[in-house]
Design a protein around this nucleic acid. Structure first.
Lengths: 217, 217
DNA sequence: ACAACAAGTCACCAAACAGTGACTTAATAA
DNA sequence: TTATTAAGTCACTGTTTGGTGACTTGTTGT
């Protein structure tokens, strides 16, 4: 029986659980992981903290469930991947630039990345493992075959570029410029993107001839 | 009058101040900036916390004085810089690899870098400003002239490589591999270093001909 | 209508933490 | 020797935080 009398106050476990999970996300985005205190979460959710212990068992489990609900990498990989005819050069460029912007526009992901650098936590590790898994699929499927015995080298390059893109997005907490480039402005960010594309291009165009010949294979 | 009777207990303001500053460093290296609580600092220093308020005015001022005492970048720049005849290519390679290892071997710097990503703080900003100043000297003195109108591009490349080197050193908190490369092993780190050198080489050897001709100028 | 269960609230406790007033005592200068 | 200064200790207060027992009240099946 569904009753929607006046509005005496809702009483719905599932909705309340969601309110707590949403509160975690909100606090994370604004104050970062260090702001995730029981009292604050309860206050943000507009419910009593006791319910956190009832429904989740504790703050830690609530946080873990929140983290488990995240899914930053599912959009990547199989989807927007056209036919690869250039060994993945265009794809790699697009991917790196997109990652750079994606992190830049996603405060939640920024905080998660920072959290992952700061605190050891099983549920966080899973987020990174999933990204690694997605990346592994792209490497083995696209670039490893192209670069052959230099595959590891290309992975190291990508590691540097991706992690650089991450760091530069986390960087503007105290200072704004890195190597003289203001990473908070559109101009500065465009410089970074152009550098990303140029580096990918350089790595692809100077791959060993014996390997590059596979392009027409 | 200098008395060194038995050992009734030393009473030396300067030494005590140093003990507090050392305690801050020790805690920072082990627990990170979040572990810098008054009681813990006092306990680590083996002195009463009241003295922190007496000598420094408070924990914040103590921490600021500690940060001000740091000096990570003075060794760079003017010193180990031989005559530059290649536009700074060898120097850039060496610098990047050294930075990568330097951060990797310096837990204190790692924690400071992480701190700078996590918290806004004037004294921290100064650390970054100083690094920027050192870098600026190298750019304007060595690479900017070489790359000419592509100088900004080279700066962006360097920004990516340096920040990538930083991130990869902070990364192994939860996961060990990034793009399939284990950044905790000697092999993995060597791959990163080789990639750094290769990328610098590529950028230098493909600089616009109009600019590269300045090499013999 | 009403018993029963679970959603939700509230008051309370305990531990961790920052900060301070009042004290003790070593060093020093007259 | 002794008065003075300041180094250092200790006990205490107040606040924030995590966590729980006892309670109230909405919902649901009969």
């Amino acid at each position: 029986m569904e009753k929607k009398t006046g509005k005496p106050r809702e009483r719905n476990k599932d909705k309340s659980k969601k309110q707590f999970l949403d509160a975690v996300g909100k606090i994370l985005k604004t104050k970062g992981y260090a702001g995730l205190k029981v009292n604050d979460i309860a206050a943000t959710a507009g419910l009593d903290k006791k319910l956190i212990y009832k429904y989740f068992g504790g703050v830690d489990q609530l946080i873990d469930e929140y983290i488990r609900s995240l899914d930053f990498w599912s959009n990547v990989s199989k989807e927007d991947m056209p036919v690869i005819t250039d060994g993945g050069e265009a794809f790699a460029k697009q991917m790196l630039v997109e990652q750079f912007d994606y992190v830049g526009n996603n405060k939640e992901l920024q905080k998660i990345l920072l959290w992952g650098l700061s605190e050891k936590r099983k549920s966080l590790k899973r987020v990174y493992d999933e990204r690694e898994a997605v990346g592994e699929g792209l490497f083995t499927g696209i670039t490893d075959p192209y670069f052959g015995d230099k595959a590891e080298r290309f992975r190291a390059v990508t590691a540097l570029l991706v992690s650089g893109a991450y760091y530069l997005n986390l960087y503007p907490t105290n200072a704004k410029t890195f190597c003289g480039i203001d990473v908070t402005t559109e101009e500065g960010r465009n410089e970074i993107k152009k550098a990303l594309e140029m580096l990918v291009e350089l790595v692809y165009t100077t791959a060993p001839a014996t390997i590059r010949s596979r392009r027409n294979h």
